[in-house]
Write a protein that binds this DNA or RNA. Structure first.
Lengths: 163, 163
DNA sequence: CTTAATCCCGACTAAATTACTGGGTTAAAT
DNA sequence: ATTTAACCCAGTAATTTAGTCGGGATTAAG
């Protein structure tokens, strides 16, 4: 189980997809600009996500990506594993080439831990992440709503004011 | 929270230390040969572990490293953080430079998750890892003990037999 | 039918990180 | 003194990350 910035990008992109994909496919250009990840890098990540059927694609204009299944059925561990295409690589692969005794003992302790981390992330779905945050921010969004209605006008003024 | 092979090496080394350090300091050469990590790399890792007071050192012959405190008080998250000297680097550092609305939302979702992972690993101590595995393997080790007594003879025969 | 939007694909590359090598020095035990 | 270790630091090979580029293939819309 590895957890690098690559996995973070993948999880972030999937969260973006879960948040915006309810009413049709989301194109990578939008995710790229919202999440500040280069388009080509996203393409690489989504190729791997698609191979694991975590997303499905729609080609042509108006196309993009959709979650491969419900957000409640997509777990963080699956996303991380998909982009890391984990070749296991725990040093002593599997169990056969371990030397006798001590060496293996510490190694197995690591494996135990790694399994625990994996199990933990296998219990966190996209839906659960979103729901938690939604509850926390729902009042804030309600407070902000009347301002968002006028943002198409004010954001131009804001942009000017920034210079 | 990053979890790379570097962190794995550090946790593995600390587990080795916890297992062998009860009767005096353990030198890095021993850890190096038991865990197959280069000596110099271990030196780098232990310099960082020492700065965080996760280990203490004894110089000179017979010297080596000891756990900085009880294994029950050393948590996996602390070890991983020590060697990654995590400069946070979550893209949007802290919270101030986040743009309004959507961009920040997904980012916060990642932060939530990252906090959860961190919290999880902050609940796993070296002692708890060792105890769990020790219980599982204690009978196996007892069974093997009489064979280990003669291993200095038989391992040469085994090596020959392998060819 | 043509165009434009989009996914798809592979090869290349720059930057960062990991893992290691090799050169020392310092402290302590024999 | 000599030896055994921790300490320290500069360099560097290998790997991974992140991105660029240049092309396809597919399909909706005009």
């Amino acid at each position: 189980m590895r957890l690098t910035t690559k996995g973070r990008y993948a999880v972030t992109a999937m969260l973006d997809l879960a948040l915006h994909g309810e009413k049709g496919p989301v194109n990578l250009g939008d995710i790229s600009s919202r999440q500040h990840i280069s388009l080509s890098y996203l393409e690489q990540l989504f190729a791997k996500l698609r191979r694991q059927e975590l997303v499905s694609s729609v080609r042509g204009p108006g196309g993009g990506y959709l979650l491969g299944r419900s957000g409640a059925e997509i777990y963080v561990a699956q996303i991380v594993d998909a982009v890391n295409e984990s070749v296991d690589a725990t040093g002593c692969n599997g169990s056969t080439d371990c030397q006798h005794g001590e060496i293996c003992l510490t190694h197995h302790l690591w494996c135990d831990l790694s399994d625990q981390i994996h199990g933990f992330l296998n219990g966190i779905s996209l839906a659960s992440l979103i729901q938690r945050r939604e509850i926390q921010t729902i009042s804030a969004r309600q407070d902000k709503r009347y301002r968002d209605e006028r943002i198409s006008v004010t954001e131009i003024e804001d942009a000017h004011a920034a210079f």
